[in-house]
Amino acid sequence: MSIEPTQPAPTLSWTQDGAEHTAAWFSASGASAPKNVQVVDDALTADDAYRLAAQGTSMLWQGDYHNARQLLSAMARRLPTFSRNDGEDVAKAFYRYRQGRTQRARMLGQLLVPLEEGPAVDLRRAPDVSGAWLAAAGAVETPTVVPLQDVLGAVGAYEWRRNGLFVQELDATMYPHYGTFAPIRSEYLALVAQAPLPSNELAFDIGTGTGVLAAILAQRGLKHVVATDSEPRAIACAQENLELLGLAGIVEPLLTNMFPEGKAPLVVCNPPWLPGTANTLLDNAVYDPKSRMLKAFLTGLAGHLDPGGEGWLIISDLAEHLGLRSREDLLAWIEKAGLTVIDKLDTPARHPRSMDSSDPFFDARSREITSLWRLGTKA
């Protein structure tokens, strides 16, 4: 049996006081270690920091932690704001918007901070981030350099996990883990809670995330739910939530890509709603590159449905209003997969952005409809 060689951990190097220094490199987005690094401290102005970032120079902060946070905020305020051009095609405008978000993440990701074993941020007045970082990225075994944005993201996600999110459809609180999308859009949960069940024996929940849809199905009386996800952190999150809800004996989280083995009378999937490239872990829950997951679900559904079974596709039509995907595309993919539409349950968007007239894509967001497509196989 051959053993694949272990890939060496990425490292980052810089020069300080005439000496070469090296540390491990970590980026939550998987970004490569920067090659041009400059050591900076509290004397650095926001204008100079912005200029360095624009030039592609990363800044290794060695000043006060709170000053670093203020500097990051000041850099963000200097980034150009997005605005629609008169008469601009909505799809082109959204593409520009996404490009701007990518550029924003790249620029702000240039401000770096050192981590040491603990894990701890090795800066003056740094808060205790050990619990947040362990939950997000694991132990730090050697001096490591990370983007400050990643530290702040881990701390924010840890607060979500500790406080939880009340889900009305469950009458209970869910606790999203770092990198697992929080179920804040209640309208799609309500559709799953209300749609008529074809059976109460077995269901597959594809891409379970926090496990919220599997939990709703279990509370509705399903005897067994297999909840799949390709991300280990999502499976761990679902397991924790299901145990807290007392549903661990009904729902079986399973680490696998898309479908489990076998067939079921009900197969449910809530894929990312927008075609596009994911730039962060949370983007994976929103953006589906070239609609790969959506197409994979539709293509594989017929082979995993019992005779007379149903596939529930929960998806928004926002992509259609943004010109990223047409209704004709979706119907063609359903037809090509050997499926037929049994019924479609709709609900209007109720999230804050759908009511924010200052949003550059308000027209599209205000018309958004979330649907549960009940799909069956062709006779």
Score class of each variant (00 low, 15 high):
P289A: 15
A33P: 04
L282T: 12
Y178T: 06
A248T: 09
E328P: 09
A49T: 06
F82W: 02
L345I: 07
Q70M: 12
G156I: 05
P5Q: 13
D317K: 12
S230V: 14
L165V: 10
D359I: 05
A24E: 08
F361R: 07
R220F: 09
L322F: 05
L255G: 07
D128V: 03
L152G: 09
Q7C: 03
V39N: 05
G209C: 05
T22E: 14
L266A: 01
K295A: 14
L301V: 12
R84M: 15
G338H: 07
G249P: 08
M258R: 08
V225S: 15
L191T: 04
D329V: 08
S58G: 02
M258W: 04
A135R: 10
R77V: 15
R78M: 15
V268M: 13
E368T: 15
S199F: 05
A19I: 14
A43S: 15
E320Q: 13
L330R: 07
Q7D: 03
P271D: 03
L108F: 11
V286T: 12
A337G: 06
L217D: 09
H177P: 01
R101S: 05
V251A: 01
D42W: 01
L202H: 09
A33C: 08
G118W: 00
A24P: 00
I334E: 06
A31G: 10
F259C: 10
V40C: 04
V40L: 00
G246C: 03
V212R: 02
V225E: 14
E243I: 08
G209E: 08
D359F: 11
P147Q: 11
P143F: 04
G118P: 03
D47V: 07
C237H: 07
I314K: 08
D171Y: 03
H321I: 07
P183C: 00
A33N: 07
L108S: 10
K92I: 07
W373P: 03
L318H: 11
L324W: 02
T299E: 13
D64G: 06
S326G: 02
G338C: 07
W160P: 02
T15R: 14
D306R: 11
R327Q: 13
M1H: 10
V225C: 11
E310D: 12
R124L: 14
G276E: 00
P260N: 08
P352S: 09
